[in-house]
Design a protein around this nucleic acid. Sequence first.
DNA 1: ATCCTTGCAAATGATTTGCAAGAGT
DNA 2: ACTCTTGCAAATCATTTGCAAGGAT
Lengths: 131, 131
Amino acid sequence: MKNFDMMLREHDLKATKQRIGILSIMQDKGHINIEDLYGKIKTLFPSISLATLYKNMHLMLKNNLLTEVSVKNSKTLYEITKDSHAHMHCENCGEVYDVDFNFENLIYPKDDSFELKDTQVIFSGICKNCK
Amino acid sequence: MKNFDMMLREHDLKATKQRIGILSIMQDKGHINIEDLYGKIKTLFPSISLATLYKNMHLMLKNNLLTEVSVKNSKTLYEITKDSHAHMHCENCGEVYDVDFNFENLIYPKDDSFELKDTQVIFSGICKNCK
DNA sequence: ATCCTTGCAAATGATTTGCAAGAGT
DNA sequence: ACTCTTGCAAATCATTTGCAAGGAT
């Protein structure tokens, strides 16, 4: 718990028990949407409100503690910000897996008029479990 | 108009004037979200309802005439399905640009347990106009 | 003629806001 | 103590549904 406590402080956020709870669930799940996260966090803090969850998600996103993962046909997912990697998204069960990926290998028409900040790669298909 | 008329038929959809209107706006705009699309389509068909727009978008997506583009922190965008390409997304103005991209060049740890169907690449940053 | 699509209104679902009480530093 | 966060309720915004009338083949 000291762990998440520090993470929050380092990102200029107060370490509330709700936030620590959110982060511990996210660490456990890897990728999670708001609905599922709310279900989980309520088992830790039965009185937590959805408004609090949304407020915290937005704050942690803004402070770069969390990262948004947008996948087609699915609710937006969130993960704890990690080093660069790609995602595999199962179109059947919706699960998202991290994939080691070296962005240096990406060959594309460099365009100096565009200030590149981030690159996202998402592989869609059917995962092992669903085949 | 014969153009979109045929496109619709080829995808097993009736060619209604509302659908043709939606497609012509999309062709013109390239990438557009529901809200903006509704604003535009209403100038062509003032009495069109949002429900009709949503129903048609879902049908055309299902029949692969349209493709969904999910970008972070923005409303979902839609485009007319085209040959494979990547996207550049401006974090400032929200504009999305198509980028020629050869997916053959993508090097990643192939995993036979995952049945790959589609790969999405999104470059985020600041576009020329916003710099 | 038949089946699909439209437009409307209402229902549902998702996200945001304001505010008073409580928690963190 | 001071400021930020929480929980609640209500407001707003986004998407979906059912149904009767109209349109496409």
